[in-house]
Structure formats: C-alpha cells, structure tokens
Design a protein around this nucleic acid. Sequence first.
DNA 1: TACTTGACATTTT
DNA 2: AAAAATGCCAAGT
Length: 101
Amino acid sequence: MASARDPEYVERVLATAERVPPGRVTTYGAIAEAVGGGPRQVGSVMALHGGGVPWWRVIRADGSLPPSHGEQARRHYYDERTPTLPSGRVDMRSAYWDPAD
DNA sequence: TACTTGACATTTT
DNA sequence: AAAAATGCCAAGT
C-alpha cells in the first residue's frame, strides 16, 4: 500500500500541494494522478499530514470548496486573490493548476 | 478475511 | 442546476 503511513507517499502529496502557486488551485484527483493512488487516498493523507501545507489550494474537481473547510478556504482565496465565482465556487477555468506543470 | 469509511470523481436522475 | 447513484483506492476496524 502506497499510503498515508509511508512518509514517501506523504512527502510526494505534500510536495505537490506546496508547489501549487498562490492564487491557483488543484484537485485531489490531479494530485492523485501525479503521485499515484486514488483521490480519496490523497485526501486521507492531507487529513493526517496536511497541517503544514496550503490545503485550501486543493479542492474538489467541480470547484467546490473543501467539504470541511469552507470558511477558512474562502478567507485564503480572498487573500491570494484566487478567482472565485459568485456562487462561492472557485473559477476552475482560469485558476486550475496542473501538478504536472 | 470481510465490511465499513473517507479533505474524491463521474455519470445519471 | 442540484441531488443521488456508482465507481475508485487504500486504510481502519
């Protein structure tokens, strides 16, 4: 299992999350494809070890804010001037950043 | 070993 | 447009 317990996997996930430029966002799925495993796995890793990374730049594929962090994330988005839609969702069209970049 | 659970994704109602 | 159903991958119990 390439996993939340393996520091290596965790490192890769966190490293990718840290590489996300300010004002941009990426998705769990994208990271999952970059580091391997499944989107949920990435989520679990973030949940356990995401304390030191900008998790607010990592959102769901549909642009919805992180399920359990709506308010926090919103504040950060405002600070980083992340393109958001009136509906409270991030503007994926322009703010999306690909980990493979 | 089998079932449940989860910072998700995609498709269909 | 919004909600439900289905699929995925690995951990936790």
